[in-house]
């Protein structure tokens, strides 16, 4: 393929970047999730009992894995692309014959690579605490891949508009983290009062977490096909929006 070398260059550069700084990128999720499993799963979970036939520890594992995938796919693209803008070495790519879709694909794949690697680290840690009965591996893999892609795309938009390092932490702190926690990571929405159940259905992360939970342990609060449709729809929307931003040069061309 004509642009395969340029694409590979961006992806490998991204992978080298986050593996070079592994104490910042790979170690923290390992520690954080260990604490989640220890505190929520083991200490508190034993008192909560089963949810829909699964132990509390087993129930929260898919959500905790996907929450890490979401935050790290997003964080990788937003921090890397913003730094590239900030240090002006985005110009290295802009002056080269690399089409916008290759730039976007390269950075998004870099984000997905980090998301998946973090997902594997968290999965490995969860196996120290509980067994994961895999219900449908293909659904689980498809969900994790699509979710990671979606949030890498969202991170790219954040990086394009960001004009300071503060601006790249606002969305993760004030939007992504609350939506993840309220997306049914630690509970089933059926446990909520009816009004909060309806409000929760407006949270797209709820669908992804439940679809992933279905793939791993066969339990879900939502329709799986609808969850795939929502994720796919958002991906398409964000790809179009990102390509429009790159075409216009928003945030990267004077």
């Amino acid at each position: 393929m004509k642009y395969s070398i340029a694409f590979r260059t961006i992806v490998f550069k991204e992978i080298r970047r986050f593996t070079r700084i592994w104490p910042q990128t790979l170690l923290p999720p390992a520690i954080t999730t260990s604490l989640y499993f220890l505190i929520f799963g083991t200490l508190i979970g034993e008192r909560i009992g089963d949810i829909k036939g699964a132990s509390y520890m087993t129930y929260i594992v898919p959500g905790v894995i996907l929450m890490s995938v979401i935050s790290h796919s997003y964080a990788n693209v937003v921090s890397s692309f913003y730094s590239t803008k900030f240090q002006k070495h985005i110009e290295e790519i802009l002056v080269a014959p690399v089409p916008n879709w290759v730039i976007l694909a390269g950075y998004v794949c870099g984000g997905v690579a980090r998301g998946l690697l973090v997902g594997m680290v968290v999965t490995s840690i969860s196996l120290l605490f509980t067994e994961i009965p895999v219900n449908n591996i293909w659904i689980a893999l498809a969900v994790v891949l699509l979710t990671s892609t979606l949030f890498a795309l969202a991170g790219f938009i954040n990086a394009v508009f960001a004009d300071s390092f503060d601006a790249i932490s606002i969305i993760p702190n004030f939007v992504l983290t609350p939506l993840s926690y309220l997306g049914g990571v630690f509970y089933s929405v059926s446990m909520l009062p009816e009004i909060w159940q309806k409000i929760s259905l407006g949270n797209p992360i709820l669908y992804m977490i439940n679809a992933f939970r279905y793939g791993l342990i066969g339990i879900t609060d939502v329709d799986i096909q609808f969850a795939f449709a929502i994720t796919g729809g958002f991906i398409l929307l964000l790809i179009i929006f990102n390509l429009y931003l790159l075409h216009k040069g928003v945030g990267i061309k004077n």
Partner: peptide, 23 residues
């Protein structure tokens, strides 16, 4: 405007990659 954290050689290899030049 190059990446201050990359080595001299990597900066040139990456740039060549953007132009589609084989490794």
């Amino acid at each position: 405007n190059f990446n201050q954290f990359e080595t001299v050689e990597d900066i040139l290899l990456n740039q060549a990659g953007y132009y589609g030049i084989s490794r």
